[in-house]
Amino acid sequence: MTYIENVFVCLAAPLAVAALCLGRRHLRLFLFIFAGMAACLLSAYINTFLTALYRADDLHAVTEITPVVEELMKFFPLLFYLLVFEPEQDSIRLAILTVAAGFATFENICYLIENGAEDLVFLLVRGFGTGAMHIVCGAIIGSGLVYVWHRAWLKIAGTCALLGAAITFHAIYNLLVAYGGALVYLAYILPVLTLLLGAVWLRLLSFMSGHCRS
C-alpha cells in the first residue's frame, strides 16, 4: 500500500517554502504545480472508488475509468482559473501545462514508489511516454481553449470537445499500454510524435498566415 497523501505532503512542503521565498510574482506557477499534484491525488481516490462501484477489473479501469477521471480532475483547476480570473491567452496555456506537469510528476513518483527504480532505460521511456502524454492532453486543452474561450458561441461546445479529445487521446494511450507487446512502444512514442507533429503544424500555420499577409 502506498500512502500517497504522505508523498504529497512531502513533495509539497519544499515547494511551499520555495514559493514563500520567491514571493507573489512566482506564486501562480507554484499554485498550478500544487493543483496538478492535488488533482493526481484526488484522481487516485476517485478512480479506486469508481472501480469498486462498477466492479471493473484492472483492464477496464485503466482504459475506461482512469482517462475520464484524470482529465476531468486536471481540467477543474483550469476551469476555476478561467471563470474566476479571466486570464490572458498566454496565461491559459501556461496554467494547463503546469497543472499537467505537476500531475505527471506526482504520478511518476507514485509509480516509482510502487514499482522500484532499478531499470533506468524503462523508466526513461515510461517517463517520457506518460509524462509527454499528460503534456499532450494539456496542450490539446490549452491551445484549444485559447481559441474557443474568446468566442462566446463556441465556448461550451468547444470546451466539451477539447475535454473529450483529451480524454480519448489519454484512453487510446492507456489502451495500447494495457494491450502490451509491441503496441506498448507505439504508445510511448505516440505522445512525443503528437507533440512534434503539433509543433510542425503550428509552425506551418504561422508561416502560411505570414505568407498570406505579405
Binding site: 479501469a61 461546445a157 489502451l175
Partner: peptide, 22 residues
Amino acid sequence: LFRETPKFFYVSETVWISSFIF
C-alpha cells in the same frame, strides 16, 4: 484489441456528446 466494446464508463460518449453539440 480486446474483442469487446467498452461497457463501464463514458470515454467515447464525451466526444460523441460534443459532436452532437457541434
